[in-house]
């Protein structure tokens, strides 16, 4: 008897997590001899957003879903960790942070009747702007579009003017000059062709958001032990693949950026990074207030391993 699962995700088919999910579904089908068939619905085609997935999988509306971890923060604040600014400074640290936090993620998912299958990273977030950003003064009054609460808090502290602009309004607002900068990855900038308005990508390693793929525990429990193992193995393979692919993907993005004459600014001055790190403190404190001992132990363990806060 074949099991047919519909998997919802908000990312596009031609994005890193989107391609990864297709490969994951193919692996599962192969390893189970076509007994477990996963159909991936990209671009939110099933009508669910990232923030709906936790409850949708919990209630069995969806057998499994891939979602931006930060979107679960209203219910399980621990997931905000992956999008806290300047905790991890590069992809290696981001993986380490995920490994440290994984038990807490699994616990939070278990509370919601689901099982973590794998994580999938996004390329680092930076600032698309009209000029290179080198000092805090460059941020003064900068009309920047942020995508979550952490970004708003951080950039407000830096004297910038973080604006809340819905995704569909970003391009029109850039066109009229009411927005001067966008906080997103090189990947996100590529999909919107941001170089048409902001030809400089400041690679600051601001944050390393994660996607989480989780399956409904009951649906998973109904599989045979062999099928369960096949799904878990495909998950591990997908995680390894996506964490490797993110580097080549980033390089590919940079090629596209250069083709379109985008200036890529790396190696921001340490003083600038320090100021940014200081500005995000309230966001960290807010998160620690919400997650208590659990959050503190994650950050402490992580700090011990990488040697910085």
């Amino acid at each position: 008897q074949t099991v047919k699962w519909d998997m919802s995700m908000e990312d596009r088919a031609n994005s890193l997590p989107g391609e990864g999910a297709i490969a994951f579904a193919e692996d599962v089908a192969k390893a189970t001899n076509g007994q477990v068939v996963i159909t991936v619905h990209h671009g939110g085609a099933l009508g669910f957003k990232n923030k709906d997935h936790l409850n949708a999988v919990r209630d069995g509306v969806l057998p499994l879903a891939q979602s931006l971890a930060g979107a679960f923060s209203g219910q399980e604040p621990v997931f905000l960790l992956s999008s806290l600014p300047f905790v991890a400074r590069n992809l290696d640290e981001a993986k380490l942070l995920y490994d440290v936090a994984r038990p807490a993620y699994e616990e939070a998912l278990a509370r919601n009747g689901q099982k973590l299958l794998y994580s999938s990273p996004f390329p680092p977030t930076g600032i698309w702007a009209k000029k290179p950003l080198r000092t805090v003064d460059d941020l003064k009054g900068l009309k920047i579009r942020t995508y979550d609460v952490n970004g708003t808090i951080t950039f407000k502290n830096l004297g910038a003017a973080p604006l809340q602009v819905s995704f569909s309004d970003v391009v029109p607002q850039l066109g009229t000059g009411n927005l001067a900068a966008v906080l997103t990855s090189a990947d996100g900038g590529r999909s919107l062709k941001l170089w048409e308005f902001t030809p400089v990508f400041n690679d600051l390693g601001y944050a390393f958001p994660l996607n989480i793929t989780a399956v409904n525990a009951d649906a998973f429990g109904k599989l045979s032990p062999a099928q369960q193992k096949a799904v878990m193995d495909a998950g591990s393979a997908a995680e390894a693949r996506d964490w490797t692919a993110v580097r080549t993907w980033e390089a590919k993005n940079y090629d596209v950026l250069r083709e379109n004459k985008t200036e890529i600014v790396k190696d921001a001055p340490p003083a600038f990074l320090d100021a940014l790190a200081k500005a995000r403190e309230p966001a960290i404190k807010d998160w620690l207030d919400k997650t208590r001992a659990n959050g503190k132990s994650i950050l402490d363990t992580f700090a011990q391993k990488v040697g910085h806060q």
């Binding site: 596009r12 088919a13 031609n14 671009g43 995704f167 569909s168 391009v171 029109p172 066109g175 590529r190 999909s191 919107l192 062709k193 048409e196 308005f197």
Partner: peptide
């Protein structure tokens, strides 16, 4: 005639300049 939400959705998926 711009602005248009369908065009934005298509532009992002197809990687076509929304402008």
């Amino acid at each position: 005639i711009p602005p248009s939400i369908v065009m934005i959705v298509y532009g992002v998926i197809a990687e076509v300049s929304i402008a």
